[in-house]
Design a protein around this nucleic acid. Structure first.
Lengths: 244, 244
DNA sequence: CAGTGGTCTAGACCACTCC
DNA sequence: GAGTGGTCTAGACCACTGT
């Protein structure tokens, strides 16, 4: 079994060693959330590895949620993931700030449209119903973590398009005599669609978490359908299921 | 803007073209779930690309859940994801077969241990309580999709270690006068731990979905804690939240 | 055994960001 | 303009799978 080969280890563990090196630095807090890693070329020189090998190590750490990149800006240590409990009906702003992190919401676009056949079916309403399409980006600690595409039934929320739609909708609904009463949630781990990745400033095709949420009012009507695309490392979902 | 360079496109879209090629074949059902793709070298020759570029395309498709690989055996088209609704309290076998797919469970190991301080705290019981540790692998359509590590409180399920533990626990509990009454769930998108990846026969560091489930009986005692590691492309989670 | 994916070298050019 | 990550070439050896 012993080998006298001069190449002591050709098993291909180089990128794992590098991975463990950075994992150690991060756990020791020598590298802290938000810190920038050295450039891929620098790391390669230091460890006498090619960029491809370095990138493999970094991509593995990225998949583990320890580091992230922003398009051509470099690699950074990830902030801790935020816990999201849909059952609590707290707004994004509330649950992020309660966890000691700093939330931010940007409105990218808003548009009133008239429901076509397909949208009407999705929203369980009639063709021609006015709908508000919202497109928002949400950040935690200055890092964009989530792209939101929402469709709201304006018949049930008349005049909502005149509000400041970068604010929390959860808090806004009581004004319109509505609340989120029930919701259906679907979670899926998948690659981020190109458009969402672009909005988040990250390379396309990276793993992400897709959440589809259908919000009902007390009458069981659909108030809003929400498609969220999260960075996979930014969120942990917690749900309690009780009774039958 | 026009260029007379002989290399018509140096933007680096090669792997995206390849990605679209296979996406098209899969959507057209020219490639069906379970089918094997040509080898990386063959694809490279056909499209005049290096293996690294081919692999990047394949890895992107993998992140999207369209294809998967099994260690050194090749790349295959993914079967459809199964929908998992924890609130329905159906067993794995039930919800998979109801979706027209074929489930299978293997018991990898089982062991009775005595709770140490840490485990006792987790299970909200006393130090020394007998616990049953289970390690199972579950497959859909012959593809291993899920590794399960479970810890059961044997004081509440006395004699369970003598049952056939590759069977559904959900169905077994009534025998012991217990049912799953409530559960706390945590979902996290992360890389699979090396051991889970090895058990699933896939390369380490690939994206996965981690589910932690704490199961309570009617008295509010913890019956079981379950850690599941899913292939990220094998499952969609659906949850309904009702009332307050 | 041949064939496959897993890992790696040693370069290169490009698009974009930052200064 | 210098530096960064994003993409790509043209090879190589290895561990493991299937026969």
């Amino acid at each position: 079994m012993t080998s006298n080969s001069p190449t002591t280890d050709r098993n291909g563990n180089h990128y794992r060693h590098l991975e463990q090196h950075f994992r150690y630095l991060i756990h020791q807090k020598a590298l802290q959330p938000g810190d920038k890693l050295p450039s891929e070329r620098e790391i390669g020189e230091q460890f006498r590895l090619t960029r491809i090998t370095v990138r493999q190590a970094l991509q593995t750490l990225e998949a583990q949620g320890l580091i992230y990149r922003q398009n051509r800006r470099g690699w950074f240590v990830s902030p801790p993931a935020v816990a999201y409990n849909p059952a609590q009906r707290k707004s994004f702003i509330e649950y992020v700030s309660k966890q000691g992190l700093f939330p931010h919401t940007e409105l990218i676009s808003q548009e009133i449209i008239s429901a076509d056949q397909q949208l009407a079916a999705q929203m369980q309403t009639q063709k021609g119903t006015p709908l508000l399409k919202l497109h928002r980006r949400r950040s935690i600690e200055g890092r964009p973590v989530l792209i939101e595409h929402m469709i709201l039934n304006v018949d049930l929320l008349s005049g909502i398009e005149k509000e400041d739609l970068s604010q929390s909708l959860t808090r806004m609904l009581p004004k319109f005599g509505q609340t989120y009463h029930a919701m259906d949630l679907t979670f899926k781990s998948t690659a981020l669609p190109n458009s969402a990745a672009a909005d988040l400033g990250i390379a396309t095709g990276l793993p992400g978490l897709q959440i589809e949420r259908i919000n009902y009012n007390e009458a069981g009507e659909i108030l809003e359908i929400d498609y969220e695309y999260w960075r996979h490392d930014a969120v942990i979902i917690q749900v309690g299921i009780h009774g039958q």
